[in-house]
Amino acid sequence: MDEKKTLIEVRNLKKHFNVGRGLNLKAVDGISFSIKEGETLGLVGESGCGKSTAGRTIVGLYDITDGEIIFDGMDVGRLSKTEKKQFTRAAQMIFQDPYASLNPRMTVTDIIGEGIDIHGLHKGQERQKRIYNLLELVGLRREHANRYPHEFSGGQRQRIGIARALAVEPKFIVCDEPISALDVSIQAQVVNLLEDLQNEFGLTYLFIAHDLSMVKHISDRIAVMYLGAIVELASSHELYEHPLHPYTQALLSAVPIPDPEVEKNRKRIMLEGDVPSPINPAPGCKFQGRCRLVQDVCRKNAPELKEVRPGHFVACHMVK
């Protein structure tokens, strides 16, 4: 069986925001990973850890501060105008808030058709036929085409957002917490839809979320992010069965288990303190102020992300 090729490779990516007075907010501070064609990489972490900023930077919504993004052999930071248009077609995004991301003054036809028009993919009847097909593909009906976003439920609006992303026939989609704003009863439907679309069209996903149980369900591999850095990266099964970084262990200990006896007796790892400021983080390990294993070396030197088991990478001085 042929090894799938790497579609996107992120190398030491940084995204800093100037917040005035000569200060920079280091939202993404040197992350590296790759995603193969047809694979789903889950990106998890607490709110404010930089995962959404990473996704937006990868698809070009934010300029890169430093580092490289190699997409299908192209350096995204050095694309010509024509190549950048090709990239924006190949890499799409599904946003967290399905209402804020849809223009309330545009009909569903206009929302889905916008990308088709920009890239000159279909015109006239072919364009309308394509829009109808996309609506049916995501579980909506043709008569929805002439309605406005406010006429739909949250789950339906997210399906419109998915149809918009699919309209230009992308290879890669960043799913930025696509289910966090939805009712629990709808979340599984949307995740199953994303999986079906991936199987049908060979899509590659970066799936950003904070719901670890859902990430396990959809992801082939999972990267755990803390304060702008990746602290652990492994296959979905390996990460859940053998979490090695103390932050990952704490996150997983908070995931409910659907067995009352097991849930009642298991030990939770409670993190002390707050997430430090990304504007002026202390030297050394970013997790040092909340870690139960902290040593002097953690306060002096930032740990590198190293492979400690086959395919299992950890950034921790205490993990050998």
Rank of each mutant, 00 (worst) to 15 (best):
D183C: 11
A167T: 05
I173K: 02
I173R: 03
A145F: 00
Q189G: 03
S180L: 02
P178H: 03
R157P: 02
V190P: 02
P170R: 05
R141L: 09
L166A: 14
K171N: 13
I173L: 07
L182D: 04
R142H: 08
L182E: 04
Q158C: 10
D176M: 14
H144N: 14
V190G: 00
S185G: 13
Q158M: 11
R159H: 07
S153Y: 10
A165G: 11
S185H: 12
G154A: 11
Y148F: 15
V174D: 01
R157I: 03
C175W: 04
Q158R: 06
A188E: 09
A163M: 12
V190Q: 02
H144S: 15
G155L: 10
K171Y: 06
S153W: 08
S185E: 10
I162Q: 08
Q187P: 09
V174H: 02
Q187G: 11
V168H: 03
A163F: 04
A165P: 12
S153T: 11
V190W: 02
G161V: 05
S180R: 00
V168Q: 07
Q187A: 08
A181F: 09
Q158G: 08
I162K: 11
A188Q: 13
L166I: 13
Y148T: 07
P149I: 00
D176W: 05
P170N: 13
A165N: 07
R159P: 12
D183M: 12
G155T: 08
R147F: 06
D183N: 11
V168W: 05
G161L: 02
L140Q: 04
E169G: 09
A188W: 06
P178Y: 01
V190F: 04
S180P: 04
I160K: 03
A167H: 08
E143N: 14
F172M: 13
P170L: 12
I179R: 00
G155H: 08
N146K: 13
A188Y: 12
R159F: 01
P149W: 09
A163Q: 03
P178C: 11
R164P: 07
S153Q: 10
I160A: 06
A145G: 00
F152G: 09
N146H: 14
C175A: 15
I162M: 14
Q189H: 09
R159I: 04
Q158P: 12
A163Y: 00
G161I: 03
V184R: 10
R164Q: 14
S180Y: 02
N146E: 13
E143D: 15
E143W: 05
V184F: 06
E177C: 05
I173A: 00
V168I: 15
R142T: 00
E151P: 11
C175T: 08
A167I: 00
L140S: 01
P170V: 05
P170Q: 12
V184S: 10
F172Y: 15
E177A: 04
K171E: 14
C175S: 10
E169Y: 12
A188P: 07
P170E: 09
